Lab assay of single mutants.
Amino acid sequence: AQASVVANQLIPINTYLTLVMMRSEVVTPVGIPAEDIPRLVSMQVNRAVPLGTTLMPDMVKGYA
């Protein structure tokens, strides 16, 4: 199964992502692939992302 990117903490709206904020986990539904974690660093979330939430492409500015 493919691992997705999951929030490792509460990520406030407009926060620039860093490695410590994200982890990879096999979840349903599938979100942003874990292999894209390096690409996500320094990208901004466009909403608050609670701890344990799967990151979806529409949550990250400029990802989709």
Rank of each mutant, 00 (worst) to 15 (best):
Q2S: 14
Q2T: 11
Q2N: 11
Q2L: 09
A3H: 07
S4F: 03
S4K: 01
S4N: 01
V5D: 01
V5Y: 01
V5P: 02
V6A: 04
A7Q: 00
A7R: 01
A7P: 02
A7F: 01
N8Q: 07
Q9K: 12
Q9F: 10
Q9A: 14
L10P: 13
L10N: 13
I11K: 00
P12Y: 05
P12F: 05
P12I: 04
I13S: 14
I13T: 10
I13L: 12
I13V: 15
N14F: 13
T15M: 10
T15R: 04
Y16R: 15
Y16N: 09
L17C: 02
L17S: 00
L17M: 12
T18C: 03
T18W: 03
L19T: 15
L19D: 10
L19M: 15
L19K: 05
L19V: 13
V20Q: 09
V20K: 14
M21I: 03
M21R: 03
M22Q: 01
R23I: 08
S24G: 15
S24P: 12
S24F: 07
S24K: 07
S24E: 09
E25K: 07
E25P: 02
E25Y: 08
V26D: 10
V27L: 07
V27I: 09
T28L: 07
T28S: 13
P29H: 05
V30R: 12
V30E: 09
V30G: 09
G31H: 02
I32H: 01
I32Q: 00
I32N: 00
I32G: 00
I32S: 01
P33F: 12
E35P: 07
D36I: 14
I37D: 00
I37T: 08
P38Y: 12
P38E: 15
R39S: 06
L40G: 00
L40A: 01
V41L: 15
V41Q: 07
V41K: 06
V41G: 03
S42C: 04
M43N: 08
M43R: 08
M43Q: 10
M43L: 09
Q44C: 03
Q44S: 11
Q44H: 04
Q44L: 10
Q44V: 06
Q44W: 05
V45K: 00
V45G: 00
V45Q: 00
N46W: 06
N46M: 09
R47E: 14
R47K: 15
R47T: 07
R47P: 02
R47W: 10
A48T: 13
A48C: 04
V49A: 10
V49S: 02
V49W: 02
V49Y: 02
P50Q: 12
P50L: 05
P50V: 06
L51R: 08
L51A: 12
G52Q: 04
G52E: 06
T53W: 09
T54D: 00
T54H: 05
L55Y: 01
L55V: 05
L55Q: 01
M56Q: 11
M56K: 08
M56G: 05
M56L: 06
M56P: 01
P57L: 10
P57V: 05
D58T: 11
D58G: 14
M59P: 00
M59A: 07
M59F: 11
V60E: 01
V60P: 01
V60A: 02
K61G: 09
G62K: 08
G62V: 05
Y63K: 02
Y63Q: 05
A64C: 04
A64N: 05
A64T: 12
